[in-house]
């Protein structure tokens, strides 16, 4: 058991027997009342999200999870296929549980995963990732009102708005949460 106030992003909880992972947390004090926490929880097996508002002093049932490294191999359009890097056991994770991860995870790359009873609750993708620009539109000159940007596609298929000076074959750092361009990376 933990206090609801201790729950943070990534904390795994058992709700009505089902595992959920906290994806958003916001503290609220209504008026001058006692502290509450508003949680957005996600079920890793269904992708279903749940909103819960609890007093920070309420008890919540947390579950003991393990961090295990998995290598991302490929997706078949429905599931991600990952392999435990120490046991070589393979596991499938529904793609719907991690929207957009197909455009962020790189084939062959190792990701730390939050695991509970042989089930992957969370794939810990770094908040900033360097991608190769696979496709870049030619910059259209003259349209500089919006600070002169254009779209590029990374090697993983992620579309990112970047400054016009970014060219195909260059590397860029991207915020994986907001999918926003951060900077050009000189290699």
């Amino acid at each position: 058991m933990i206090k609801a106030g201790q729950i943070e992003k990534g904390t795994a909880l058992l709700i009505k027997g089902q595992p959920f992972v906290c994806v958003e947390r916001e503290f609220v004090n209504p008026g001058k009342g006692s502290a509450f926490v508003r949680l957005k929880l996600k079920s890793p097996s269904t992708g279903q999200t749940l909103s819960e508002t609890m007093k920070t002093q309420d008890n919540a049932e947390d579950i003991t999870v393990e961090d295990i490294d998995y290598q991302y191999m490929y997706n078949d359009g429905e599931n991600f296929h990952l392999m435990n890097t120490s046991t070589y056991d393979q596991i499938e994770v529904p793609m719907g549980s991690f929207p957009d991860y197909q455009y962020i995870m790189k084939d062959g790359e190792t990701y730390r995963c939050t695991v509970w009873e042989d089930q992957i609750l969370d794939i810990q993708v770094p908040s900033k990732v360097v991608f190769l620009v696979a496709e870049a539109e030619e910059a259209v000159k003259g349209d500089t009102v919006q600070g002169a940007t254009k779209y590029v596609t990374t090697e993983t298929g992620l579309k990112v708005r970047v400054p016009i000076f970014i060219k195909q074959g260059e590397k860029i750092r991207v915020n994986t949460e907001t999918k926003e361009y951060l900077e050009r990376v000189n290699s």
Partner: peptide, 10 residues
């Protein structure tokens, strides 16, 4: 008040 706040916030 505490129960009210639960309803209000949810």
């Amino acid at each position: 008040e505490e129960t009210f706040n639960r309803i209000f916030l949810t």
